[in-house]
Each structure stands twice: as C-alpha cells, then as structure tokens.
Design a protein around this nucleic acid. Structure first.
Length: 360
DNA sequence: TGAGATT
C-alpha cells in the first residue's frame, strides 16, 4: 500500500470512543478513504489506536498539524503518519524489567537508542507517578529490537543494582476487555464495525470527488455520505450562511439562561438548521484564532459531535469569533451548555454557549 | 506481569 502520505495512525484513543465520533473528528479535515478503530474481533474491545486514510496528503498533513494533541475525554490523542506495514515492524516491542527507579524515560531511551530507531518509550508508574521499574521500548524494526535485547539483557545499568531484564513484549491482545464493556456492547453501536475486510480494498478510492457524496461503504470502514462540509480546505469553503446575525447583539441575551434561547427540544428541527436530528449550539467568544479542532476539543468531552463549523471572515482569514457545534442528542447538547457556557478559555471574554435560535 | 504503534 503506497498510502504512506495519506495514512495516519492515531494513538491514545479513549477506550469508549465510538467509530462514529472517531470518523467525524477526522472528517473535519477533509474527505477520507477509510477510518477504523482497531478492535478485538470477538469482543469489540478497542486497542486504543486506529487508522485514518485520507484522500489527499494535504488533508493528512493538516490532520497531523491540527489534531495531534487533541484532548478527548481523559486522553491526549497522538496523530502521526503511519509507517508502511510489514513483517519487519512486528515483534519490535521490548518489555523491560528492573529499571532503576531513578531512571527517567529519556535516560531509558538514551540507553536503547544506539541499537536502532526508537518509535516509543514508556516507563510504567504507580498512581502517584513513581516509576514501577518496568517499561516498554518499541523499535522501528524487529532486527533493531533483537539487537538491543541481545546487547542489554542482563546488564546492570548506571544507577542500578539489579540486572536489567529485556524480553520481547508479549502480545496480550484478545484478553483485554474494558470492565464496563461486555462483548458486543456499546462499541458496536450503530453497526459501523464489521469484521473481515471483505477483500475489496482494491475498489476503494473512487468517491466522486470533493463536494459530492462518497459512495461505497466498505466492510469495516466508515463512510458517511451526508457529511459534505469540511474545514478551511474543504470544498469551496462551504460554510452555510449563518453569519450576519449574532455579532450585532452580543449583549446579555446570550448570557441569560442559555438553555432557552428560543429552543424547544424535539420540535422545530427544521428551524434549527435544517438537516438531520442533531442539536445545534451557538458558540460565541471563541476568539479570532479558533479552529475546527478548537471546538472539537471543547465539546467532545460532552458527547458525540456531528459537526463543527467555525465562521470566518475570509477576507481577513480569521474567525469571526463564533461558530456552531452540532451534538447528537439533546442531553449532550444541554450538558455542554451547562459546562461550557461562561467558561473562560481564551483569557478574553467567557464563552457563550446556547442552543442556536431560529434567527442565528 | 505489563501499556496499548500496524488494520
């Protein structure tokens, strides 16, 4: 697969993150060929990482630039280009024991670095943040890991009294299961997860271009024809109208009982923005530098985001200070209002978050 | 005995 410039690996995903949320977050950067949270086949348990393959290298790069470091629930996700897959990158992970308690992650990395390209180093800690003396070193290649194992297993590191133990990390995949997530539970909600690739990947990628619906849902992959509005690099900068109103009257009416600015749940959906069943929130005082990812970071802790929309002055190439966030359910939207309205996140004016009224 | 970086 020569998708090296478009294929991303996403690490440190929250355990409960759904495929739909995952897909929607990355779709905000542009059209994607496929996205997937890697899960145990039988239990649906998320391994905490996933892949997103964009149609263009530019969108992939932008996703790395803007979504890496995004906080989702209790995690800070990592977004990076995926290495091309192959046998040589498997079994490249080492499990280290008897690491001196005083040794830092950087020192451990320094010890291993001469044996190859290191992808990741981790020292496990107790709840107080103290080293437990065990950790992992992941190399780029199997041979490099082998070299390090043969060279370092049994040595006494500086500052230590015990022999370092270096072994191949065991693969515990398949045993894992989240405590509150029985097999077939919430992870498979919505039916977006399918095992077995279907062997049709050669047929992917013909999606009719930007601005159109992408057809062709593949087994195990996400596809969402209704989502055609992207961020700045999207088709024609396709923001719905929506400017014009709220700027003029940024007075008390937005601060005043945000739960009731002309909104009644379950009714007037068409008034409230048209498409679908989402609940649209108006978000003001997000600052001129706000990005789609800014809204994602703010709102994703409170539920499933269907869409974010930052309103920009395209002449000045900056945000007009407000945007919209569509959440899946009324409860999530209401919860976001309760938690975010009045939140001072820019250091400037506090956020004003309310249900989008008919006027806006 | 140990998290979650290769579908």
């Amino acid at each position: 697969m020569e998708s090296g410039k478009t294929n991303l690996i996403i690490n440190y995903l929250p355990q409960t993150l759904q495929d739909e949320e995952f897909n929607t977050l990355f779709l905000s950067m542009g059209p994607i060929k496929s996205s997937k949270i890697v899960r145990d086949r039988s239990t649906g348990y998320s391994y905490g990482f996933g892949f997103v393959d964009y149609e263009t290298p530019e969108d992939a790069q932008r996703a790395v630039d803007t979504l890496n470091g995004t906080e989702l629930q209790n995690k800070t996700i990592k977004v990076a280009f995926a290495r091309p897959s192959g046998e040589n990158i498997k079994e490249a992970n080492l499990y280290i024991k008897n690491i001196p308690k005083s040794m830092t992650r950087d020192e451990l990395q320094a010890l291993f670095t001469e044996y190859g390209k290191i992808i990741q180093v981790r020292i496990l800690t107790d709840p107080y943040g103290n080293s437990r003396g065990v950790g992992f070193v992941l190399f780029d290649k199997k041979e490099e890991a082998e070299f390090a194992l043969n060279s370092l297993d049994g040595i006494v590191p500086k500052g230590g009294t015990e022999c370092l133990s270096v072994k191949h990390a065991e693969d515990n995949k398949g045993k894992a299961r989240a405590p509150n997530q029985p097999a077939g539970g919430a992870n498979v909600r919505g039916g977006y997860r399918h095992d077995r690739g279907g062997g049709m990947r050669g047929g992917m990628g013909q999606y009719g271009g930007r601005g159109g619906a992408y057809g062709g849902n593949m087994s195990g992959y996400w596809e969402r024809p209704s989502m055609t509005s992207y961020g700045p690099a999207g088709p024609g900068g396709g923001y719905p109208r929506g400017g014009g109103g709220p700027m003029r009257s940024q007075s008390s009416r937005f601060r005043y009982n945000p739960m009731s600015s002309g909104y009644s749940q379950g009714q007037n959906e068409s008034q409230n923005g048209g498409s679908g069943s989402g609940h649209i929130l108006f978000v003001y005082n997000i600052g001129v530098d706000a990005q789609e990812s800014t809204l994602w970071q703010l709102f994703s802790p409170f539920g499933t985001i269907e869409k974010v929309n930052v309103i920009r002055d395209h002449a000045k190439n900056q945000c007009k200070g407000y945007g919209f966030v569509t959440m899946s359910t009324y409860e999530e939207a209401a919860n976001a209002i309760q938690n975010l309205n009045g939140y001072n996140f820019t250091g400037g004016k506090p956020l004003q978050v309310s249900f989008k009224s008919a006027k806006e």
